[in-house]
Nucleic acid binder design. Structure first.
Length: 729
DNA sequence: AGCACGCCGACT
DNA sequence: GTCGGCGTGCTC
């Protein structure tokens, strides 16, 4: 038996691979990156164990090519978290390790931060008498004084001085008065702590008091209505953590990591802040990651993947908008940043805070079972009162492009009273369907089982599922009629209807189409926030975060689409959307009003929301999930398969069923075709597993999945497992 | 996932 | 006679 090193490399391997130690030099430590041969290629991998014995025949072993890191890149806790996640989500560990690393480290580049030049005075420079300086050119004098004042000058500070400071400095260096050195530059943002926080009310105080940075692990769910000041509680807890010398990790949904949020953190906290999100340049991302790992950053604000960032001195983890589906990766390594953050906090023995105005049913169930502390923030900050909510029965109502007369009247009266109105419709484009009035032909995408959405502004048909676009046909391809009509509602159409109904008050539309240009979202929001525009309409994008204090009316244009979704989570999503959008209204002095257009005013979900708000809805929804045997009461996993061939996905899943380990504790549903069977030219099917316990589910998956890859049918499909799926479509 | 090998169709 | 299509199989 030869001593080998285990190395996790990207590829379809369920385990790390065995390698001989490098020919020249000692065995690399666990946690360092190495370059290894794999087939004809060379790969970067992470050492996960060794030296140890191999089960493999010696003649199949190849040596490590070289060792990249002098010291471990990943600490044991981070490695254990990634290993655990790879097993739990049944994803190859090598891929899990590499997705946890910034691109540059993945490619094997050195783990060193950016460098910046800094200038300082030499002894000669310091010794130069003030009067001697006085004889110098004014620019030189200015820089000498600046160097004297601040000790060193960095490029950022130089930019503040202006002019061609660099060439003046070069002169000073030539004269021996100044010298350069290089210093690591992690590109961190300074916390300025120059704004006082609002005093916490008693609810916020009780909640903040429960977050004790040095008292070990606790999971705290902050269930706070919009405007109740969750962020103030986070900031209070973060500041106390920083005072204890601990780092804080804040995880936010992709869309939540806005400059405004960063600004707010900077203005309220001291210490250095690192930002981690997908929009960063490779170098910036590497710097932020290294700063977190080195303990140079005190606060790390990041999206999903930041849950894996190593921390030198972890003290607190915050997950904002914990209900948000974007915290679950939807392809490849399908991990939940929220769930992993809770596990990580537990293992690091630090508190974790989960905040939302509309907590996921998962988190509410955890709270009910005593695993999380549950803190409700029921009062809005300042004098803002909760909005009143009202259903508008659409049945039999005449409508103008989807707007009922009562809704138009409400909008008018709010505008008359000097308020702003916000209309929410979660469907962009002009209309979701284009139909031939002569023969009934529908404009359908030829790659998806879906209809084209008609975008009038662009004069095109657009499939929202595969992004295929087409010019608008002049006449029906089936019968030749020119009477093609738009059926149904989209934001463009509402915009047109509003423009006509309120000619004096031009609306601003905020959706992915209208905000495609860089900065146009901020611009539109600006117009809404300053009151320059008093009619605001849009999608999803409106529901998140931004304060619109002058909005007094919020209208949900069409609640019906969310009531009968195929996904069992559709009602939860609708409720969250309604509450989040409603939360935009009446945040200032004026009371807000929320109206919901529906053809199903008697629907229990709407009735619950209306009379008991989100908590009442959640109670009912949890009872329904319990009765139906669905998450969060039971654990779920999906096995998905897709292929260009129509029959292959179902054939694969049917072949898979008999290989499943017998276990009565795990219920199997399907296989069945996905609700939208064909998408982007691929046919899709799935098989659902439900179990009373996660460990039963895991046992079945572990005993089953390895056999699936060996099925001949597996070669015809792309298949994947999704543990705790966020969408079961 | 890559990247080879290998065994059948249309081309300089 | 080759160039190249993508089915099949392997990587420690």
């Amino acid at each position: 038996m030869t001593d080998i090193i285990r190395v996790a490399v990207a590829g379809p391997f369920t385990e790390a691979l065995d390698y001989l130690p490098p020919a020249n030099g000692p065995a690399p430590a666990v946690g360092v990156r190495v370059r290894v041969p794999l087939g004809r290629r060379e790969r970067v991998g992470i050492v996960t164990a060794g030296p140890t014995a191999s089960d493999l025949a010696a003649d199949r072993l190849r040596p490590i090519i070289d060792v990249i890191d002098p010291t471990p890149l990943l600490d044991p806790a981070t490695m254990a978290l990634i290993e655990w996640a790879a097993r739990y989500y049944h994803h190859p560990p090598g891929e899990a390790y590499l997705t946890a690393l910034p691109t540059r480290l993945r490619r094997g580049e050195p783990a060193t931060p950016g460098q910046s030049t800094a200038w300082h005075l030499t002894d000669a420079g310091r010794a130069a008498q003030p009067d001697a300086r006085a004889r110098r050119a004014p620019r030189q004098r200015q820089l000498l004084e600046a160097l004297q004042r601040s000790g060193t000058l960095t490029p950022v500070q130089l930019a503040g001085i202006g002019g061609d400071a660099r060439s003046v400095l070069r002169r000073l260096v030539e004269q021996g008065l100044a010298a350069t050195d290089t210093a690591p530059d992690y590109g961190l943002l300074p916390g300025r702590a120059d704004q006082p926080g609002a005093a916490l009310n008693d609810e916020q105080q009780a909640c903040a008091a429960a977050i004790r940075p040095t008292a070990g692990h606790a999971a705290i769910l902050i269930d706070g209505v919009t405007g109740s000041g969750k962020t103030e509680v986070y900031l209070d807890a973060i500041a106390r953590s920083l005072e204890c010398g601990r780092q804080v990790l804040v995880i936010v949904p992709e869309i939540g990591l806005t400059p405004q949020l960063v600004q707010r953190f900077q203005s309220r906290l001291s210490g250095r802040i690192a930002i981690l999100h997908s929009g960063l340049a490779d170098g910036e991302r590497l710097n932020a990651w290294l700063a977190a790992r080195a303990g140079v950053a005190d606060v790390v604000i990041g999206t999903r993947s930041a849950v894996f960032v190593p921390l030198a001195r972890p003290g607190l983890i915050v997950i904002d908008e914990e209900h948000d589906a974007s915290l679950k990766q939807q392809e490849g390594f399908r991990y939940s940043a929220r769930d992993l953050a809770v596990l990580r906090a537990y293992r690091s023995d630090v508190p974790v805070v989960l905040g939302s105005a509309t907590p996921s049913l998962e988190s509410l169930a955890n709270a009910a079972q005593g695993r999380y502390q549950h803190h409700a923030l029921t009062r809005r900050a300042g004098h803002a009162r909760p909005p009143s909510m009202q259903l508008l029965d659409m049945r039999g109502q005449p409508t103008r492009e989807g707007l009922s007369q009562p809704l138009i009247d409400r909008v008018q009266s709010h505008l008359d009273a000097g308020g702003q109105a916000l209309l929410f419709l979660n469907r962009r484009g002009f209309a979701p369907t284009l139909i031939c009035h002569e023969c009934g032909w529908l404009a359908e995408c030829d790659r998806c089982d879906a209809r084209y959405t008609y975008h009038r502004g662009r004069g095109r048909l657009h499939c929202h599922h595969c992004n295929r676009e087409q010019r608008l046909p002049h006449h029906c391809p089936s019968c030749g009629s020119v009477d093609l009509r738009a059926l149904g509602l989209g934001t463009e159409r509402i915009e047109a209807a509003l423009t006509e109904a309120f000619p004096q008050t031009p609306p601003v539309r905020i959706d992915r189409d209208s905000t495609r240009r860089r900065g146009s979202f901020e611009q539109a929001m600006q117009r809404a926030q300053t009151g320059e525009t008093r009619l605001i309409l849009g999608t999803q994008m409106l529901a998140k975060g931004h304060h619109l204090p002058a909005v007094t009316l919020v209208a949900i244009v069409d609640a019906d689409q969310g009531l009968f979704g195929a996904d069992f989570r559709a009602p939860e999503r609708l409720a969250q959307q309604v509450i989040q959008v409603a939360g935009r209204a009446g945040r200032a002095e004026r009371p807000g009003e929320v109206v919901i257009q529906t053809h199903h005013p008697e629907h229990p979900l709407l009735q619950q929301l209306l009379h008991g708000g989100y908590p009442a809805f959640a109670r009912t929804a949890l009872a329904e999930r319990e009765a139906a045997g669905l998450p969060p009461m039971r654990a779920m996993a999906l096995i998905r398969a897709e292929a260009t061939d129509r029959h292959a996905p179902l054939a694969f899943l049917r072949a898979a069923v008999p290989l499943a380990p017998a276990d009565d504790a795990v219920e199997r549903l399907g296989p069945f075709p996905a609700p939208m069977e064909r998408r982007a030219g691929r046919h899709r099917a799935q098989l659902m597993l439900l179990a009373d316990s996660r460990s039963n589910l895991q046992a079945v998956l572990s005993g089953w999945l390895p056999a699936l890859g060996r099925l001949p049918e597996a070669r015809q499909v792309r298949w994947s497992v999704d543990v705790d799926p966020a969408e079961s479509l």
